[in-house]
Design a binder for these strands. Structure first.
Lengths: 170, 170
DNA sequence: TCAATATCATTTCACTTGCAATGAAATGGA
DNA sequence: TCCATTTCATTGCAAGTGAAATGATATTGA
């Protein structure tokens, strides 16, 4: 009882609740339409943007541990959305790329995902969004200097990308 | 390849990455010191604030489904941090409350958790934080009017609580 | 009063997760 | 050249997860 501490005003809790709710909303979309999990969706998107990649590469970029990527890729391959071929200069590597079906699936889901994101962003003032993203970056930076925190994934570090409003440029 | 869509600038992805990193940092703390999971931590905090509660009540307040609460409570009881007693007016209900050990554990973890949060907040300008939280609320509100999204938990709805800066008042 | 329905907490079951092996292949140094 | 180390992807395994089922109790309405 008592104690001034309230879970509802605890920043980590708030982030978790928000993130989970948003993520769940997204999942409804690509679960229903293509039976994809979050991991599979991320792999697909990465391949859509980068064309091809090894398990390690994808792992480094999309914030998923290697076993998760490996299994996601296996499921995607079983579903015919992705192709795995042994690299010929390094036999340990597996080069993963989208099949035409994978391209099609991605082309189908991307607009839906973007639309959901757009709906969320529409309610937010431009300047507020900018500050929001700045704060996100600041939190990351604080964690960067905390030895107890997990390092950021490569993607986060390389890209200080702004959010793309509805009609995506570049 | 190509396609303008980048995962790194996709809001839901960003939220997930940030939330996971923050959550993991917290977990290091109460995992190491008391072997607690996130669910157990939330239950403990809820009880610390509300004194007692049923599984359903806790479930509604701390954004955990009932099975998860039930199991978290079971583990906490096994560890002696929590006590379960049958409600005498309604035999279905279980009234859960902290034991002295539970109080002590909470008293031990709370400062550490607050300290980590304070470190994150310290880097953020007051006004920016306010806007950040406003944006969080706006995202929730957008989801509130989306029939495909999961409704907010009771706690979120009842409390528009601001973040408490370091020396927690009230 | 008593059957139908609703509300609890818990359990079941199939599935996912994350960490730590594992085994295969490449690399570097003696 | 050849052994030790490193770098790959995958798999094993113990634990966790969530949705639905279960069983116990309460409530409601005929």
């Amino acid at each position: 009882m008592s104690d001034a501490f309230k879970l509802s005003s605890f920043l980590p809790y708030r982030l978790a609740v928000l993130s989970e709710r948003v993520s769940r909303r997204l999942t409804v979309e690509y679960e229903r339409t293509h039976g994809l999990s979050v991991a599979e969706w991320r792999v697909l998107v990465h391949l859509g943007h980068h064309g091809r990649g090894s398990v390690r590469e994808i792992h480094e970029w999309v914030n998923l541990d290697k076993p998760r990527v490996s299994r996601a890729v296996a499921r995607l391959e079983a579903g015919g959305l992705v192709r795995k071929i042994q690299d010929d200069t390094d036999a340990r590597l597996v080069v993963i790329s989208l099949t035409p079906d994978g391209q099609a699936a991605l082309g189908d889901i991307l607009p839906a995902a973007t639309r959901i994101e757009a709906r969320l962003l529409d309610a937010i003032d431009d300047q507020d969004l900018e500050i929001f993203l700045k704060v996100v970056q600041q939190i990351h930076q604080t964690l960067d200097s905390d030895p107890q925190a997990k390092p950021r994934s490569r993607m986060e570090l390389e890209q200080a990308t702004p959010i793309h409003r509805s009609p995506p440029t570049q």
